Computed example of a mutant assay.
Amino acid sequence: MEPIKVTAKCPIRTTLELLGGKWKLLIIFQLKDGTKRLSELKKGIPDISEKMLIQELKKLMDSDLVTRKNYGEVPPKVEYSLTVAGMAVLPLIEQLKRFGEVYIASRQIPSL
């Protein structure tokens, strides 16, 4: 898979190119506590298809936010974990989470 082309000089656009979309931040959040296998990630994000999860993991690996370790066993054993750059995203996710909590509370919107 071709790496994401970061063409903008704007740091906000760069961040959006790397992390934008419905799934990437959720995947990174699932990896915050350490290494996980594909099935564990799927359980943590039940509404993502396996195909989409694999595609998004490949994009995150191409961006050097996630690493993949293949043990070369049968049956296959593959694990995913955050890189140093991926871990740097965690404070951003925490701020997004706080914003969502405050927004929901202020609007009296039922949480999901």
Results as ranks from 00 to 15, higher is better:
residue 23 W to Y: 15
residue 112 L to H: 15
residue 101 E to A: 10
residue 75 P to N: 09
residue 27 I to C: 02
residue 62 D to I: 00
residue 67 T to D: 11
residue 27 I to T: 00
residue 3 P to H: 05
residue 26 L to W: 04
residue 74 V to E: 15
residue 40 E to M: 02
residue 10 C to Y: 02
residue 33 D to V: 01
residue 7 T to I: 11
residue 92 L to Q: 10
residue 73 E to W: 02
residue 19 L to E: 10
residue 68 R to I: 01
residue 101 E to S: 14
residue 75 P to V: 02
residue 73 E to F: 00
residue 39 S to Y: 07
residue 7 T to A: 14
residue 88 A to L: 14
residue 99 F to V: 09
residue 26 L to Q: 13
residue 72 G to D: 14
residue 104 I to L: 10
residue 112 L to E: 12
residue 48 I to H: 01
residue 74 V to I: 13
residue 45 I to N: 10
residue 49 S to W: 03
residue 105 A to K: 14
residue 21 G to P: 09
residue 47 D to T: 11
residue 102 V to G: 09
residue 33 D to I: 00
residue 33 D to E: 12
residue 46 P to N: 06
residue 95 Q to T: 12
residue 74 V to S: 12
residue 87 M to E: 14
residue 32 K to P: 03
residue 96 L to S: 08
residue 70 N to T: 06
residue 71 Y to V: 01
residue 55 Q to G: 03
residue 110 P to L: 09
residue 1 M to Y: 06
residue 24 K to T: 03
residue 29 F to H: 15
residue 50 E to F: 08
residue 7 T to H: 04
residue 60 L to S: 09
residue 21 G to R: 07
residue 54 I to R: 15
residue 109 I to E: 11
residue 111 S to F: 09
residue 14 T to C: 12
residue 62 D to Y: 08
residue 32 K to N: 10
residue 99 F to T: 03
residue 64 D to G: 04
residue 19 L to D: 10
residue 54 I to V: 11
residue 10 C to R: 01
residue 99 F to K: 07
residue 41 L to V: 05
residue 22 K to A: 11
residue 36 K to V: 00
residue 16 L to Q: 07
residue 59 K to Q: 14
residue 74 V to L: 13
residue 108 Q to C: 05
residue 5 K to E: 15
residue 41 L to I: 12
residue 29 F to W: 11
residue 97 K to T: 09
residue 3 P to C: 05
residue 54 I to D: 03
residue 21 G to S: 05
residue 44 G to H: 06
residue 37 R to L: 08
residue 3 P to E: 12
residue 9 K to A: 06
residue 25 L to R: 09
